[in-house]
Design a protein around this nucleic acid. Sequence first.
RNA 1: GCCCCCGUAGCUCAAUGGAAAGAGCAACUGCCUUCUAAGCAGGAGGUUGUGGGUUCGAAUCCCGCCGGGGGCGCCA
Length: 610
Amino acid sequence: MFEKEQELIEKKIKEFCISNDIPLAELKWQPIPFSGEWGFATSFFQTAANEARAGKGGKPIPQRAQEMAEQVKGILRLAAQDGSVDGISRIDAVKGYLNLYFSTAVYASRVVDEVLASSLDFGRGAKKNERVMVEYAQPNMLHSFHIGHARNTILGEVLARLVEFAGFETIRASYPGDIGLGVITIVWAYDKFYKGLEPEGIHERGQWLLKIYVEATAMLEKKENETSEETAQRESYETERRDMYRKWDVGDTYVRELWKTLLEWSMEELRDILRMLDAKIDVWFYESEVDEPSKIIVDELIAKGIATDERPQGGAVIVKIDEKLGLTKEKFRTNVILRSDGTTLYLTKDLALAKVKFEQYHVDRSIYVVDVRQSLHLQQAFAILKLWGFPQAEKCHHLGYGFVSLPEGAMSARRGRVVLFKNVADEAVKRVLAVESEKRGDIPEGEREQIANQIGLGALVYSMLSVDNNKDIVFDINEALSFDGRTGPYIQNAFVRANSILKKSGNLAAGTQVNTSFNYELTRHEIELIEQISRFPQTVEQAANEYRPLVMAAYAYDLANTFHSFYHAVNVLQTEDEKIRNARLQLVMAAKQTIENALRLLDIQAPEVM
RNA sequence: GCCCCCGUAGCUCAAUGGAAAGAGCAACUGCCUUCUAAGCAGGAGGUUGUGGGUUCGAAUCCCGCCGGGGGCGCCA
């Protein structure tokens, strides 16, 4: 916003330092803390330390830094007099810092005009010539979608939105685990005990498969004090299950068809959940589809001398990663990329998948949103890709996240101890509707339901984003669905309030009007709101660079918080002076737009009323 | 044995080298005939696990220790 002014000031500081033989350190700018008045600042501690190290000075560092700040202040003041630093109202030297205060009116109209002119694109980064793939939503099929999967999907979707908005071409990829012993277990149990049955409803049907899984697991599990009869039955079930997996592997028509049918039920459920979360996946990779190609890769890796084939000695195919990289200390260790029986592993498939990502989708960067416990596994995969010769391997990034557990312990699909996302979302909507019908009986019921959906999901989504991704979450439904304080609805409410002011003013459509004049004494609340709005673009950049949705989540709250305070302190519609009233309306419009943009990045909808 | 993450207010979490460590929840005090109280304002709450080190400056970086969680060649 003040890049030109900043550049000019930097130039002056450099000139000053050169002519006084001062070894200037890199100039780092930051906003001045504490408001009332705002601007940006830089300190001279580092420069003073440099000077001391060079053997000059002899004064304490803080004192010398302050001296420099004062001298620079003097120079800049002279420059300001001849009009060359327009927009800066005041310069201060405090505690070694040089503080440059903005001219309120200039800054305010620059910020507000920019937001209104770019509207939905406010904060969007310049186009980068890089294609990024974000892989997330990798649930095991036929298991139903629990809140752990929800954390993954929400993080992935928000990361994709951030990266995209920051200017990268972005591809969203999902990688469902559509095959494996767990999946076959359900197919087997369905075939044996429930063949032909099919519950009504996408989610009911999907969740029913999970129940079958829990039952089947119990049947297949060795119990204490089994009778010999029970043992025999369990073992025969086990044989049937293994047999079915073998049949799947060789492409047996009956098993494949049945598997496809159940898989489709589960996929419908998944697609509906992704629809609820507004996650539009561009590319679907299926585990079953990379199985065969990955075997070819193993041969290639052996031929290149990267992998070691120990099968002749009765072993597996392994990669001694540390050794191949020439590392002396244990880091990536050694891992198996093909079982001794020739079947593939997760790692094998991940190599095949990466190859497809690089060669078929030409991605320059690849982000994996995966449970933090798979960190070593992914580091191994990336290291092998590097050995294999893919330059993009350097730009593979694992966004790990802590796992989601329940107050009673870890979730377990096999034991049926899971909290399903759909159930929580339904409960969320129910709770919002209860509040809604009490407070807003005037809103038609159909509309209320839609709003309840937006708010309920907003609460849930925000609760997943407001904790840094490396932290574990103990899922507490009351906490996740709280509507007070630091929550999704709090932010949505700020949006609604802004909207409400604009609606009542009848000035809703004036968004393209620019050149707002803020030539009056702004209140502290207006200034803080403008400052907060102006931080949005850099927040987008930071969140995208650091792969941290939390940064945006925290910002959205701060922005909403500032707006709520403004809302109470400044009555826009009752402002008598028409010019001031208009300026404030423009400001409200800008705030509304910025909240909307932030919410969109957080995958939270912005209701017009609530 | 090796590696990774975490330890900040009673609780849940922010702040990743800069000015006096911030929010929410819980508890307390005020504010709805005034643009929606899912809100605002205010007071209270801290030796940032611990001991060293680096630095002008450390919650942040380095080393040790204590406590918690996770991972480590044929699971995903």
